[in-house]
Design a protein around this nucleic acid. Structure first.
Ligand SMILES: [Mn+2]
Ligand SMILES: [Mn+2]
Ligand SMILES: [Zn+2]
Ligand SMILES: [Zn+2]
Lengths: 128, 128
DNA sequence: ATGATATTGATAATGATTATCATTTGCATC
DNA sequence: GATGCAAATGATAATCATTATCAATATCAT
């Protein structure tokens, strides 16, 4: 039986109150600053538990995993390689084409991750 | 000036002779078995140098980076979460839709990574 | 309120990758 | 072909995110 502890509630509230993609360390620091410090191992375990309960979503980037609210529709991400900004986009046609190419190969899809790298509008304009 | 050493040549030859997606450790072991052992740090540095020279491609998976030949056209990957098989696919429409959605947001694309997770045909049929 | 059990937290361990640094090697130049 | 030097090598330490340990604590069904 999975328990809803004060630590997990704090993690969930914190992420749900924002629109960011948090890593474990950022959350530990932010929660400490907010007056609800918790051990870093508890942060990792809490995030994993909340995700498998469907209460959080995550994206696995090259170096670390980032968590976000789960109450948004499925979307993918564009990441600015200059300023680190993470933008979201949803594209139904891309989604369905993925399913069809997988089906063509007899592949049973359980998930996917699409990340576009480049320069966001602001950083693109820096170089003008 | 970047030097083409015997170690780097061995790495390149080894990967070009195969169709796999290698991680650094697999390469170190395979090269040792093949009679051209080299330090693991040399493997990492060699792979990075060859990739930035455009002689190798890579995909960054959750836990580790995997290298493959660069003489194939751009493609994305489907990974079987059961047996670990990595299949390749190319889909021009998905590619161009990515560029258009990025352009819509003023995003200058430098690259992307699309990975589809699920069960390959063989593993899908296991559960029948 | 009680007890079984899941969670916490401090810390050690792990695993992939990078940094150090003394030694060696590729290669441009003579 | 010999020389010189910047770049590469390799053994190993360090780093960084994440997971494992384990004794103490908190949750929750009863
Ligand atoms: Mn998102
Ligand atoms: Mn490939
Ligand atoms: Zn930017
Ligand atoms: Zn499979």
């Amino acid at each position: 039986m999975v328990k809803l502890t004060s630590q997990r509630q704090a993690l969930l509230d914190f992420i749900n109150a924002s629109n960011r993609h948090w890593d474990a360390d950022e959350l530990a620091r932010a929660l400490a600053d907010a007056g609800t410090p918790m051990g870093i191992a508890t942060v990792y375990r809490g995030l994993a538990a909340l995700e498998s309960a469907g209460l959080l979503d995550s994206i696995q980037l090259a170096d670390k995993k980032r968590y976000e609210r789960a109450d948004k529709a499925h979307h993918d991400h564009m990441i600015c390689t200059d300023c680190g900004a993470i933008e979201e986009f949803a594209h139904p046609t891309i989604e369905s084409l993925q399913l069809s190419v997988a089906a063509d190969r007899g592949f049973t899809v359980s998930g996917h991750q699409l990340v576009i790298f480049g320069l966001c509008r602001g950083c693109s304009n820096q170089g003008l």
